[in-house]
Write a protein that binds this DNA or RNA. Sequence first.
DNA 1: GATAACGGATCGCGCTACTATCCATTATGA
DNA 2: TCATAATGGATAGTAGCGCGATCCGTTATC
Lengths: 216, 216
Amino acid sequence: MKISELSRRSGVSIPTIKYYLRDGLLPQGQATAANQAEYGEEHLRRLRLIRTLVGVRRLSVSAVKEILGAITEEGDLHQIFGIVTDARPATKLKKQAKEEETAEGDTPGVADARRLITEMGWEVSPGTAAIQTLGDVLDALADVDAGIGWQSLLPYARLTDRMSELDVKQMNGASGLLELAERAVLVSVLLEPALLALRRLAQEDKSARLFSGTPE
Amino acid sequence: MKISELSRRSGVSIPTIKYYLRDGLLPQGQATAANQAEYGEEHLRRLRLIRTLVGVRRLSVSAVKEILGAITEEGDLHQIFGIVTDARPATKLKKQAKEEETAEGDTPGVADARRLITEMGWEVSPGTAAIQTLGDVLDALADVDAGIGWQSLLPYARLTDRMSELDVKQMNGASGLLELAERAVLVSVLLEPALLALRRLAQEDKSARLFSGTPE
DNA sequence: GATAACGGATCGCGCTACTATCCATTATGA
DNA sequence: TCATAATGGATAGTAGCGCGATCCGTTATC
């Protein structure tokens, strides 16, 4: 398959494919001459996966690159889950705002996040990016004085614990290791917007029953 | 309070504050002269909320603007929830990819999303953006042949249903209507990255127990 | 043997979220 | 009182991201 066919079958323009090739998102095809290369079905699968993560999940190209790197390097599924978990969604902000940003120790929020993890009995690697994310949110909640602390998140944590059991159940039925890894990415990453959408729908349903038509 | 004090107390640079004022994210201060204006505590609160949504939740400035508009316009809490739910997180993609994008009817995924909502007994306005989001994910799952359909999402939906009950419980204790609306935004929007982080931590825990050290 | 497609590289573009600079005006303090 | 600094308002510039457009010399195709 040449690049034009790859473009037609994937619906991705040739300049975009070239861009992904340059950036290392998509592996180079088998070169047959100085200016000819052959692409296979794996390239098509890859390309579809990339477009799904970028288009639907709205990950940055660099984040997708990290995830694809994790898939490609051989490793057990737990390692893949770990790297996928660590993949950062977007760019960071500048400094300013607070000194805590540059401090080398844990922020109060991160300490609370670790408390929550201990309370749940979860065993996770202590440097996971998710801990930082959770800590950032707890810091922000404290900053705006929302009255929502880590204990308030415990019931949420119990629900996500059950969710993750569903997640690992979705992993059955994949054949090869590569396919299993791709499936892990889909379940872990692509389901995220779906879960948020489900929560918002459920919120709308609940808020209709409780708050509608009852202004101050 | 003048702009320099607002900047110091919020940690946001003066040019950025000016930018938010221009963009209508932050209401203008009370003008006391041609080149003097007075800002109050509400401006400080607003600014902190903006920085939280942009910095922690990583919403785009335009999305934050929509949400703040929803807060400010008087309305019942259910309306606010609805508008917050509809607020789009990022920019759209170009066309191409599939013809379904431009089709005016529902995609198969959106139809499935509506089936799921019916099955859950949820009552939501039929034009909610969350339905589209959910449909997009279902379409993407079908495209990559993941074997995950709307029925697979039912157990997830039941968990998010319980989550939303927690969410509305968090709404207690706010005094004014404005404060209630801000709280709704925090619970609905700011908790999203926290929930994803919790799910990832739980996934790492579960995958460690099930998959670690068992390569092909 | 003309034409089209190929790969590879470079340049440019539209968008976002700011940042920097300039300006005339107004507060501030020795 | 008068130099200095800060203010609001406007305009212009910036960095990064995700591509698209174009040129190039080479190679398949009819």
